[in-house]
Design a protein around this nucleic acid. Structure first.
Length: 579
DNA sequence: GCCGTTTTCGGCCCGACTGTTTTCAGTCG
């Protein structure tokens, strides 16, 4: 059994692309590796299982040709790749860090490496400070200073921040830009608009006839640490926390084209341009143009709808613009009607003061009602999670008695499920007896300890929970914490197959640090016919508000409300549970 | 390295800004 996941294969291909780029190889070859990495990372079935299957030909996947298919097979079967090893023998791995310095691309990085023997960030800093870098051909004093500047903020500048944190910054910027009289209208584009789980920078597009006035106003935003650049239509700044914000001022008739262009993703746009070209059209941030010999003729650009319509395409929801399956869906007229926040009727994972939550059951009910929910599940921790004061059998049964009383008082205006987040023990098996679990309305199973166990062991634990007749859902199935902790080594191919067989649901945990399952795995689960449950895992009243992050992730996965179990009433949802 | 109602070779998205140049390469998105 191979432990080569799609993510790991993609990382290897990315590394090859970096190394080839550093070597100055054919840019299209480099792009082929990057594209292959992306296709594999996003593919809804694991390469390992496809190769095992033997029926499946990897080259039938768009972007994977004979060569990349062979490299996949080698990686899956041997765990390594001779070609990559050879490249690494020629170029020290630390050199790739140079490519992460803002302002230092592959050409200049290669120059400092070749001419000055610089192989690490420390050596680069020393070479700059010694004034050696500015002597190189194509370099100068300003370039040297820019590299030094890039080095000092390299770690902060390259770190992607959580969407919810970018959202807080965006809200401040929105308020600031609203006060600018020269702006006719503005909006945010980029990965923030696409609702990605982490954001690299913010892009603001503004319509105005006075770009200078807009930029002058932008420059007064209090959090700006430095101005990276400013031209006639574009300005880039870095905030105190190292985060970059780009502003672009466009004309009214270009706003839609600019939104389309800067929302991306880059890969999505490459395909859009290809489609345009075939139709004798050209797309850039100013509009869609008919390409004539003498002069290009403006066709569309005021709105995104117009831009896409001019190319015979539907206006893709931003969350779908990832060059995955959206163009196939569009061609088949089957663009999914994506789930919305208002479709959610229940939140089925939350904690109370009984364990590590901050609010009582009653407070959580009131907060859920405020947010338009019809029912919730109270799912405190089980006893093994001692740090959180997890519930043993008797405390749990007591809590359920209390919930029975509460439900009577509510008189069907709202419903509370008797639930539990039961720990899957390190040795396998559940933390509470089947006798108790049988009395629950809703049993979540999740891993808290032994997260670093080898693949076979941790997978077997989760499979055991799926086979338990009382477990209704697996919570945060991979355990990842964005920017903090890697996912468990769990084999989701096996997990999804078992869940589909036993009628166990999978969670999309909406906590912005988790978003687990991620969008690609949600798509895989959907392909297995497994209903997804989007939950907040709230530990407080405010914790219920992160549902919006889960919805964005679900939309990126292409999920409709029919794919998500907690868009149903409790009666309807029970029919989904085949146990 | 991938791909093909321009199909096995010759393409492969497009533009802003900067710095080092003196017409353009490199970087970025």
């Amino acid at each position: 059994m191979s432990s080569m996941t799609n993510t790991k294969i993609a990382e290897k291909f990315e590394q090859i692309a970096d190394l080839l780029e550093f070597q100055g190889s054919n840019p299209f070859r480099i792009r082929a590796y990057r594209n292959g990495a992306k296709v594999i990372r996003d593919y809804p079935v694991s390469m390992a299982s496809l190769i095992e299957d033997e029926q499946k030909d990897l080259t039938s996947i768009d972007g994977i040709g004979k060569d990349l298919a062979e490299k996949c097979q080698t990686l899956v079967q041997t765990g390594s790749l001779p070609m990559l090893d050879e490249l690494l023998a020629e170029i020290p791995k630390t050199v790739l860090d140079l490519l992460r310095v803002p302002g230092l691309g592959p050409k200049k990085a290669a120059a400092v490496h070749k001419e000055l023997g610089v192989a690490t960030l420390e050596e680069l800093k020393a070479a700059c400070e010694a004034g050696e870098v500015q002597k190189l051909k194509g370099f100068g004093a300003k370039t040297e200073q820019a590299i030094l500047g890039g080095l000092s903020i390299a770690s902060a500048a390259n770190k992607r921040i959580l969407w919810i944190k970018a959202n807080a910054i965006a809200e401040q910027l929105r308020t600031h830009m609203n006060a600018c009289a020269a702006i006719e209208k503005f909006d945010f584009a980029g990965s923030y608009r696409r609702g990605k789980e982490t954001i690299g920078d913010l892009d603001i597009l503004a319509v105005s006839t006075d770009a200078d006035a807009v930029m002058d106003h932008f420059a007064t935003f209090e959090d700006i640490a430095s101005v990276i650049g400013r031209g006639g239509t574009k300005m880039s700044v870095r905030l105190e926390n190292g985060f970059q914000v780009d502003l672009r001022v466009v004309s009214h008739e270009s706003f839609g084209a600019a939104m389309q262009y800067f929302t991306g993703s880059k890969e999505h746009n490459v395909i859009v341009r290809g489609i345009a070209k075939k139709r004798g059209l050209k797309v850039n941030e100013y509009g869609v143009f008919k390409t004539n010999d003498d002069q290009d003729e403006y066709v569309a650009g005021g709105s995104e709808e117009d831009v896409y319509a001019a190319l015979g395409l539907p206006c893709f929801p931003p969350e779908l613009r990832e060059a995955r399956r959206e163009f196939d869906w569009a061609a088949a007229g089957q663009l999914p009607d994506l789930i919305q926040l208002k479709d959610i009727k229940a939140d089925l994972h939350m904690h109370t003061v009984a364990t590590d939550g901050k609010a009582t059951i009653q407070q959580m009910i009131a907060a859920a009602q405020d947010r338009g929910l019809k029912y919730i599940a109270i799912t405190d921790h089980s006893k093994r999670v001692s740090m959180a004061n997890g519930l043993d059998e008797s405390r749990l049964l007591q809590q359920w008695q209390e919930i029975d009383r509460i439900n009577e008082d509510l008189q069907k205006s709202f419903h509370v499920l008797k639930g539990i987040e039961c720990d899957i023990l390190e040795a396998g098996g559940m933390d509470l007896s089947d006798e108790v679990l049988a009395q629950a309305d809703w049993v979540i199973a999740s891993v808290h300890y032994g997260q670093k166990q080898p693949k076979a062991k941790i997978t077997a634990r989760i499979l055991g929970a799926i086979q338990n007749p009382y477990v209704t859902m697996i919570a945060h199935p991979t355990g990842r914490l964005l920017n903090k902790r890697e996912p468990y080594e769990v084999d989701l191919d096996q997990v999804f197959a078992a869940a589909a067989e036993h009628g166990t649901l999978m969670e999309l945990n909406a906590n912005p640090y988790r978003l687990d399952l991620d969008d690609v795995f949600c798509g895989m689960a959907k392909d297995h016919g497994i209903p997804i449950v989007i939950n907040t895992d709230a530990h407080s009243v405010d914790g219920l508000d992160v549902m919006v992050c889960g919805i964005q992730q679900a939309r990126r996965a292409g999920l409709t409300k029919h794919d998500v179990a907690n868009t149903r009433t409790w009666n309807q949802l029970q029919k989904l549970l085949r146990k």
